[in-house]
């Protein structure tokens, strides 16, 4: 009936996933209050999700900062304020592009990996084996990945911000002959601690959404190798959509609670 309209089915699926993700979030929270997983399991996930993602995130940040510099330079030259390009690059990176683009890249890299691993474990009965050995799969599988994603995503985002700004500066000062002094002054003048913090807070939420969505898709994988592939694709797509939707609402929210000193 509804399957005749792909848009409606897709929308229903997203809502169903969102509901499942929400319930999984509650379960993860409950698991976090109890005994934590062994340290080695946590370290593994911080390494896989955090450390191993740096090349992807740094490349994204660097080229985003550089292309931003090139494009805004062309606009700003017309009104002779090329010394403002650095400020534009800095503010855009820190507030939006750093968190969102890092989030999207991580959704692809980390999200697919989480879903494929948990999905394979589900299909090969390893998740059942965990339960049979009196161990809660949410505590053992989901909690470490959620912790790693929530804590590592903001750090990765900050790194993307830094190399993005460095790349933008390199293009401005090195190639486009913007005066270093004014470039530097304007950038510092416009960058706010508040904006950097909001960027970090948003990316933490993105990390949470990626880990929970991917774990949920993994735990609900249909049997077979095709099931794992399908689940991984869905996890990436759903994570990306959730990142973009939540970015809008988070931005509105943080603007609304912006304190006086941040202006």
């Amino acid at each position: 009936m509804t399957s005749a309209i792909p848009g409606v089915t897709a929308l229903i699926n997203i809502f169903r996933t969102a509901g499942g993700v929400f319930l999984l979030a509650l379960e993860t929270l409950r698991a976090a209050v109890g005994r934590w997983p062994r340290r080695r399991v946590l370290v593994d996930q911080f390494y896989l999700i955090g450390y191993r993602s740096t090349p992807v995130v740094l490349t994204t940040g660097l080229f985003t900062g550089m292309v931003l510099a090139v494009q805004s330079f062309n606009q700003f030259r017309r009104v002779n304020i090329t010394s403002m390009v650095g400020a534009v690059v800095g503010v855009s990176m820190v507030k939006e592009l750093g968190p969102v683009l890092s989030g999207l890249m991580l959704a692809g890299r980390v999200g697919a990996a989480i879903t494929a691993e948990i999905g394979t474990m589900h299909v090969t009965e390893q998740v059942d084996a965990l339960r049979a050995l009196a161990t809660n799969p949410v505590r053992w599988l989901v909690l470490p990945r959620v912790l790693a994603a929530v804590l590592m995503t903001p750090i990765l985002t900050l790194m993307a911000d830094v190399v993005g700004i460095a790349g933008g500066t390199f293009i401005c000062v090195g190639f486009l002959k913007v005066e270093w002094h004014f470039h530097y002054i304007n950038m510092l003048d416009w960058l706010r601690v508040w904006d950097v913090s909001v960027g970090c807070a948003k990316s933490s939420v993105f990390g949470l959404l990626i880990a929970l969505t991917s774990a949920y898709k993994g735990l609900n994988t249909e049997p077979g190798a095709a099931g794992v592939g399908k689940a991984a694709t869905e996890a990436v797509v759903t994570s990306c959509i959730l990142i973009l939707i939540s970015d809008f609402f988070l931005s509105v929210f943080f603007n609304a609670i912006k304190p006086e000193w941040a202006n």
Binding site: M121, T124, E125, Q126, D128, A129, L130, A132
Partner: peptide
């Protein structure tokens, strides 16, 4: 309980 799964279900 101890359970031996048909496919082993070892943690790989």
């Amino acid at each position: 309980f101890g359970m031996l799964f048909q496919g082993g279900a070892l943690f790989d």
